[in-house]
Amino acid sequence: MRSATKSSRRRLLAGLAITGKDPAPAYYLKIGRTAMACRFEVFLRPEDREFVPAAHRALAEVDRLEAQMSVYRDSSEVALLNRTAFVAPVEVEERLYGLLRLARQIGGETGGAFDITAGPLIRAWGFFERRGRVPEPEALERARALTGWDKLGFDDCKRAVRFSREGMEVNLASIGKGYALDRAAALLVRQGLRNFLMHAGHSSIVAAGASHAGPGWEVSIRDPRDHQRSLGSVRLIDRAMSTSGVSEQSFAAGGRRYGHILDPRTGAPAPNAGLVSVVAPEAARAEALSTSFFVMAPEEVRRYCEAHPEVASIVVGGPAQERDHGSPAEPVKIVTWGISLEPSEAGGGCVTTFGTRD
């Protein structure tokens, strides 16, 4: 599916929104395509309309990557890996191999909070079919036994991957959209485009060059309890940003609500009820880390950001401010590391704590 249309300056991006403070009624060209179960869109300034064909080519690259990485397509390279990597090492395409290596690296850096082998857990909780359920304890333990980033074996000489246990599987849902954005954005830059914003599924974005308002692209952080309410904004200049939350994918059982973001270390859904945004040089890393930080304790997030100064994080809300019980009129807790959140024009009485670095 493709489209090239005009878009408002205040296009809502779920947790993010493009904003502009100049009074001119400017617009962007928007080129979109549905892939990876979401909408990918490229925003161009009108003066860059000659790059509309380039945007279509970038989106076609997203289609190609979906065909390579999808666990819902038996013909994909990842599906082949999942079927055979326990039997024998599987040679993997060079850039996909690099992505798997990056995922394993982030798994180690986050102490297992990020784990692309969590597919059995996703299935046990019913999120693979989007039919959430609480698994039986025995089923959950079987799934946990098949999960673990350290159970992936790599042969760099042969560019091959092997699973240490039968029944393991790789699922790139928590890094794949960001990776596709990185690849598509690189293609746009190679074709000569310098100023654009591209998003995937309203949660991950890449911002390059300048918008109408000047250098960078201003994005708004939305209240997870009320997506029409802005908590503040940040300006991205040649950076990526990803937001994770569970307000759109959850289920209720036994008087509790369970979100789709699982903590691989415990095998259970994360208790965090807010959202987490991460800014990083690449969208793949930003997406992986927003998922990781969602399940990590604040102190763990702080330590990670201090050790990786190229990464910044905004954590909104938490277990004490669940969507079902909070009121948009109440202050929402915002904790940031390595980034300043500009005050929201709408106000809202936000309580903001800024992290510091030595």
Rank of each mutant, 00 (worst) to 15 (best):
K21A: 15
R235N: 02
L172D: 02
W217M: 04
A173F: 13
E322N: 08
G107L: 08
E310V: 03
P309F: 10
E218T: 13
V161M: 09
R222D: 07
S164P: 01
W337N: 09
A14F: 11
I116E: 02
A17N: 06
C350T: 09
R123A: 15
F251N: 06
F154G: 04
T356P: 02
Q249K: 13
A79L: 07
E169L: 10
E248L: 12
I314S: 03
L102C: 02
V134S: 01
L121G: 08
Q228V: 08
H56L: 15
L289Q: 03
E322G: 15
G112F: 00
P331T: 03
C157A: 15
G20S: 14
P137E: 12
D226L: 12
A4F: 11
P298A: 05
L172R: 01
S250C: 10
Y97V: 00
D226F: 07
C157M: 12
L80P: 00
A103K: 02
H325Q: 11
P120V: 01
G338A: 05
L100V: 08
G274F: 04
L29P: 05
A200Y: 08
A280I: 04
G111A: 11
A180I: 02
P281K: 01
L275I: 04
G255F: 03
G112K: 08
D263A: 05
K30E: 13
G20V: 08
G192Q: 05
V78F: 10
P319C: 07
A118W: 02
H212I: 07
P309C: 09
R123D: 15
A88S: 13
A55C: 15
S242G: 01
R142Q: 15
L187N: 05
V315Q: 08
A307R: 12
R2G: 08
A253Q: 12
R302Q: 14
G255S: 08
S76T: 08
A288D: 02
D22I: 09
K6L: 15
S230V: 05
A24M: 08
P271N: 06
S174T: 01
C305G: 00
A17S: 14
G167E: 06
L262K: 11
I339T: 09
F293R: 05
A270M: 04
P23T: 10
Q228C: 05
V316T: 01
P328Q: 08
R142N: 14
S220V: 12
R57M: 03
R39V: 02
C350S: 09
G245R: 03
S220A: 12
Q105Y: 01
F354A: 13
G111E: 08
I237V: 09
R133L: 13
T19N: 10
C157N: 14
S230C: 06
R183P: 04
Y27V: 14
R131P: 03
Q249E: 00
P23Y: 12
D226I: 05
S247G: 10
L99V: 08
A113Q: 00
A200G: 13
H227F: 13
G255M: 10
H202Q: 11
R104L: 00
E345N: 04
V92A: 00
L236E: 01
L99K: 00
P89T: 06
D223Y: 10
L262Q: 12
P298V: 07
G267V: 03
R302L: 07
Y179P: 01
A286D: 06
A329R: 15
G178K: 00
T353W: 07
I106L: 15
Y304P: 07
